[in-house]
């Protein structure tokens, strides 16, 4: 009943305004009072519930950042854990507002799924892990050996086609879930295993003696991971994209979770002022349909990109991952925040 009532009110408003436009997703989210975020609930470092049941991880922090930007409150997120196969349906049916589930940006997904990808938050690639003393140093050394791989993913087909192209014959050992695969690899059921580099790193800590293993200096695919929204709502796409850019920029300009309050009033750099919507520069953020302090709230909630990385994957986590290619552009990486201007 309330739904109909609300609909009638909305209709009356629209008609009385004399303009007819579809209600955007941003407005829908604001009305609903919560952001629906499709995530992975089973990938350590990227998204996994902790002992209190709260989701934590790299992808989760971006959900929080977007929620903070929209509502000024990072807790107003509803997480929808998705399996790899559920992603397109969840996105297309509108069940989720944004998909942040270590999803590779590919042409098929932009066209078939109808997904618009926001900036890449993690540059990944499919790699291989082997024991240091296994004598395997290149893909050719997999001849006659076995490789563990997770089923139903592009990883599986990449592996098949790449090694077939090299003329290498190997035995695939297929697993439904990553944890089982890791245990099997650690127990020597296969000579190597393959998945995205981030996954390799995140699971290396789970091995009995992590230092006995190495990641081959070979990448057989490009896997840029980033948030995706549904085609056809440019305003919402801009909000998601620029929240990410804001986090990139914050790192570049030295805005952190700790000093953001100070920066808001005392920053001299006009870039920082526009980014934070400081007094006098509110319009840069308000133009997105957000409140002036949207990105300030996002940074306040989760920190800048570098902090998110360090906390979940980098030196501040059990994974101790190097920034590598995910460093800022001025450090030789690919992370490049666009200017607020």
């Amino acid at each position: 009943m309330t739904r109909y009532f609300r609909f009638l009110v909305a209709l009356a408003l629209v008609v009385s305004a004399g303009t007819v436009f579809a209600q955007g997703r941003l407005q829908a989210i604001k009305d609903r009072g919560e952001l629906r975020c499709g995530v992975n609930a089973n990938l350590p470092g990227f998204g996994v519930p902790d002992a209190s049941g709260a989701y934590t991880g790299f992808d989760i922090d971006f959900c929080k950042a977007i929620a903070a930007a929209v509502f000024g409150d990072a807790s107003k997120v509803v997480y929808r854990p998705l399996t790899a196969g559920e992603r397109p349906t969840a996105l297309q049916s509108g069940e989720i507002d944004v998909l942040i589930r270590n999803t590779t940006r590919t042409s098929i997904r932009e066209t078939d799924w109808g997904a618009n990808f926001a900036p890449t938050t993690y540059y990944d690639g499919q790699g291989f892990m082997v024991r240091k003393d296994s004598g395997i140093n290149s893909l050719r050394d997999f001849e006659g050996r076995s490789i563990c791989v997770q089923s139903g993913t592009t990883t599986e087909t990449n592996l098949g086609t790449t090694l077939a192209g090299l003329g290498v014959q190997f035995t695939p050992v297929i697993f439904e879930t990553a944890p089982v695969l890791i245990a099997a690899y650690d127990d020597g059921q296969c000579d190597g295993w393959t998945t995205d580099g981030s996954g390799l790193v995140s699971y290396q800590t789970q091995l009995r003696v992590p230092s006995d293993h190495k990641i081959l200096p070979v990448i057989i695919s490009k896997e840029p991971l980033g948030p995706a929204v549904l085609h056809g709502d440019d305003q919402w796409y801009d909000v998601v994209s620029w929240t990410i850019y804001a986090l990139f920029d914050a790192e570049e300009y030295g805005v952190t979770q700790a000093n953001v309050d100070d920066m808001l009033f005392n920053a001299a750099d006009p870039q920082v002022k526009r980014l934070l919507g400081a007094p006098g520069s509110e319009s840069y953020v308000q133009a997105f349909g957000l409140r002036a302090d949207a990105f300030y709230q996002a940074i306040k909630a989760v920190g800048n990109y570098g902090e998110i990385f360090d906390r979940n994957l980098g030196s501040g986590s059990v994974f101790g991952l190097e920034r590598g290619i995910n460093a800022q552009y001025y450090d030789g990486g690919l992370i490049y925040g666009f200017p607020f201007n």
């Binding site: 690639g125 790699g127 893909l139 090299l166 200096p217 070979v218 990448i219 057989i220 490009k222 290619i325």
Partner: peptide
Amino acid sequence: PRAGTRFSAFGQAATATV
């Protein structure tokens, strides 16, 4: 010693010359 680190470059030739 081998050059290059884990993720030194994309598109690194997967075929080693033998």
